[in-house]
Each structure stands twice: as C-alpha cells, then as structure tokens.
C-alpha cells in the first residue's frame, strides 16, 4: 500500500495527463456499469416485447388447452401462489425466531451464534438443485414414506412429490432471506425503546413481544416478500418435489401436485411436444413471472425504505 503512489503527480505537466487518465478510468468503469444496465434493459424489453401480445385477462384466468398450445396459465399462477403461501407459513416464523435469537439473545462472540450465522451463510449459498435432492431424499422418501408406512399401511399417499413437500423444500431455501432481512429490521429498533421497557419491569420476552416485534414488523414483511419473490422464481428445488407437467385443476389437498409458473416456462420451452408453436405463450408466461417478481421486489424496497425513514 505504501508503494502504491510511486509517481509524483503534482507537477504541472502531469496535470493534463492526470485529468485524461481520470477520465479514461471513469469511462472504462462507467462503461462496464452501463453495459450491465444495457443487458438488463435488453432482457426486459425483449421479453415484454415478445409477451405483450398475449397478455390478456383470458390468458391469466384460463387453464392451458390443447396440449398447452392454447389457453392460459391460471393453474400455474394459483399453484405458485399456494406454494409460496405454504412456504411462508414455514419459513417466516422460523426465520423470525432465528433472527430474534441472533440479535436479542446471542452475544456476537458466542460460539453458538457464530455457528448459526455460518449456517445461515452456507444455507444461502447451497445450490437450489441440492435443495431439490434434499426435498426428494428427506421429505418424500424419508418422511413421506415413513408416514405412509405408519399411518396408511404402505399405501402411497405422502410418499410421493406433492405441494407440501415442495413448499417445505422451498421454505428451507428461503430461510436465509427471511433471517437476514428480519435481523436488519430488529437491529433498527431503537435501543432506548428496549431500555424503557426493561426499566418498566418487563422481562426480556415481554420486551421482545411487545416492543421489538411490533417495531420490526415491516422487516418481517420485507423478509416475507423477498422470500415469496425468490420462491416464485426458483424452479430447481421443485423439479422433483411436487411440480407437475400439466394439471387441468388447481391443487385442493396437500397431497396434490401443482403447476408452477417457472416450471411451466421450462416445460413449454424445452419439454413440450411443439416448442415453436408455443413461443408467444412462453414469452407471455415469462413476462407474467417477471412482473410478479418485480412487483414483489419493488414492494420490498418500498417497505424497507419506509422502515429506514421511520428510524
């Protein structure tokens, strides 16, 4: 670091060169940044351009017809919604409790807290497909088959891919997302509020329940929104834990399979009988998925910025 500044640049003659070099560096890095922006813009524009034609109310509210070459994506949308809701039911409480533990109970230097933090980081970096394998090996094969053996006399009920196992798998995937955003929100609750609560004689748990949680409700909401956004877009974990190729109806029991927007795109683009014929539908389905994730991410940003302003 000390040898970093080797050339004397304060000489008047060097000044012009210096300005040019500065400009060059700024242009180079700026070009990289705007190249990324251009990529994003191209992706969005081309998908919206290809998809706007079929983007109608009927497309959103009808089931696929004629071997998925016509009709809409209603079961896929509903399946995605059901799956993300079930996933949130599992991931949000668990993530919130972990975040509470990490920020309220554990001292930052304790080994236990460090292990959990490391586990959260690791969980965030495990490939999605490994979660899929885990869901198949643990939920379907181990727990599902176990339930079947114990309660249904070996009759295949839970021991096959279904919406519950897919949601649980996805819940594990989105757990770190929830933990990180809830923890951030909890840390934003002013310390004075906690101290005042304790001064009034409240226990730690009462303080958490009455002061910390209400104060960080927007963070929990952000975590939930981000988790839903991730869950709506991720396909790999549900490939073999419950997503169905095609179903004419929406799932009405936990043991049903379901259609998923992302999986639907994958199926239409690579697995269906007539890929070329359905390209407009693929565009529109992708567009719907993009709009969904954009809206979710945008609302998360809004909630978070409101949270920051409040503090």
């Amino acid at each position: 670091m000390t040898n970093a500044i080797s050339t004397p640049t304060f000489l008047p003659s060097a000044k012009g060169r210096r300005g040019a070099a500065d400009k060059l560096a700024a242009t180079l890095t700026g070009a990289a940044a705007f190249f990324i922006l251009a990529i994003i813009a191209i992706v969005i524009v081309s998908i919206f351009n290809g998809g706007k034609e079929h983007f109608t109310w009927e497309f959103l509210t009808q089931a696929p017809e004629e071997g998925m070459t016509k009709g809409g994506i209603f079961p896929a949308i509903i399946g995605t919604v059901y799956m993300t809701l079930l996933m949130s039911i599992m991931a949000v409480p668990l993530g919130t409790i972990t975040a509470i533990y990490l920020s309220e109970y554990a001292s930052p230097d304790s080994i236990f807290a460090r292990i959990i933090r490391f586990a959260v980081n690791t969980l965030a970096s495990v490939p999605a497909i490994v979660f899929g394998l885990f869901g198949l090996g643990f939920f379907v094969q181990f727990i599902g088959k176990g339930i079947d053996g114990a309660l249904f006399g070996g009759h295949l009920t839970w021991g096959q891919p279904n919406i519950l196992w897919a949601s649980m798998t996805m819940g594990f995937l989105t757990l770190p997302v929830v933990i990180v955003s809830v923890e951030e929100a909890i840390r934003n609750v002013p310390r004075e509020n906690r101290e005042a609560s304790i001064a009034l004689g409240a226990t730690r748990l009462q303080t958490i329940w009455k002061i910390v949680l209400p104060g960080s409700i927007s963070g929990i909401l952000t975590g939930m929104i981000l988790a839903v956004s991730r869950g709506a877009g991720e396909v790999a974990p549900i490939l073999f834990t419950g997503a169905a190729f095609f179903l004419p109806h929406t799932p009405h029991a936990l043991t049903d399979q379901f259609m998923h927007l992302g999986y639907h795109i994958y199926v239409l683009a690579t697995q269906s009988a007539n890929v070329d014929k359905t390209i407009p539908l693929q565009y529109t389905t992708t567009m719907v998925l993009l709009i969904l994730t954009f809206m979710l991410n945008l609302s998360a940003v809004l909630v978070r910025s409101r949270l920051r302003r409040n503090n």
């Binding site: 940044a33 990324i36 922006l37 990529i39 994003i40 992706v43 081309s46 998908i47 290809g50 999605a128 956004s229 709506a232 877009g233 991720e234 396909v235 790999a236 992302g262 999986y263 795109i265 994958y266 683009a269 690579t270 390209i279 693929q282 565009y283 992708t286 998925l289 993009l290 994730t293 954009f294 991410n297 940003v301």
Partner: peptide
C-alpha cells in the same frame, strides 16, 4: 440508478434468464 438496477437483476428468476438465452 445502477444499484437498484443490479438488485433488480439479482431478483431475476434463473428460469427467465435461461429462457432469454434459449430463445
């Protein structure tokens, strides 16, 4: 402008990127 845009890219489902690449 850049930071939220790249966060937006992070939110892109990978199946969307795959679809874009494929088509």
């Amino acid at each position: 402008l850049i930071k939220p845009a790249i966060e937006l890219l992070a939110g892109f489902p990978s199946v969307v990127i795959g679809f874009f690449a494929l088509i």
